[in-house]
Computed example of a mutant assay.
Amino acid sequence: MTKLTLGAHPYMLGFEQLERLLERSAKSGNEGYPPFNIEQTSENSYRITLAVAGFSETELSVTVEDRQLVIRGRQAEDDGGRIFLHRGIAGRQFQRSFVLADGVEVGEAIMENGLLHVDLTRAQPETVVQTIQINKPSRGKE
């Protein structure tokens, strides 16, 4: 039995890129840290919220790379002579990636109470109706 993919389905033309995006998203290497939420804030907007306790704004970066939202965190090395009896607050570096659909734009990033909020908006595509003229085949000169 043959596996039917989006690119091979007879009624789904031009979706090969979507299939590649799904594969890339599955291989992005995201672990469970830091935890995050994704919420729909309106019909055409979303908010990603990451719990980044212990990180400052300067230790975080938010970039868009090849239709992927990439959020990275790296804390400066600060041993400061402190001796921890228990260290339960994770401070390790991280990278979270989110694949963005065409038309989704990254708005602002806001740091608030140990949470990083990244707002996204999706542009509403125009509905386009196109009429294709049907021509008769041209006959060669005899």
Rank of each mutant, 00 (worst) to 15 (best):
F15G: 02
E16W: 09
E16R: 09
E16V: 08
E19N: 11
L21D: 10
L21S: 05
E23D: 11
K27V: 02
S28V: 01
G29Q: 09
N30W: 06
N30F: 05
E31Q: 12
G32Q: 03
P35N: 01
P35K: 02
F36S: 10
Q40C: 09
T41L: 10
T41E: 08
N44I: 07
Y46H: 14
Y46A: 14
Y46C: 12
R47E: 13
T49G: 05
T49H: 05
T49S: 15
A51R: 06
V52G: 06
V52L: 08
A53D: 11
A53S: 07
A53F: 10
F55L: 07
S56I: 05
S56G: 12
E59N: 14
S61E: 14
V62R: 00
T63A: 09
T63L: 00
T63W: 00
T63G: 00
V64D: 00
E65P: 05
D66M: 01
R67Q: 08
R67T: 04
Q68T: 03
V70H: 07
I71F: 05
G73Y: 04
Q75T: 14
Q75C: 10
Q75F: 09
E77S: 15
D78W: 15
D79T: 03
D79R: 06
G81M: 02
R82E: 04
I83P: 07
I83S: 07
F84C: 01
L85E: 03
L85P: 08
H86G: 04
R87D: 15
R92N: 08
Q93H: 07
F94P: 11
Q95K: 10
Q95A: 06
S97W: 00
F98M: 00
V99F: 12
A101R: 06
G103C: 01
V104C: 08
E105H: 08
E105I: 06
E105K: 03
V106P: 09
E112N: 15
N113A: 15
L115T: 04
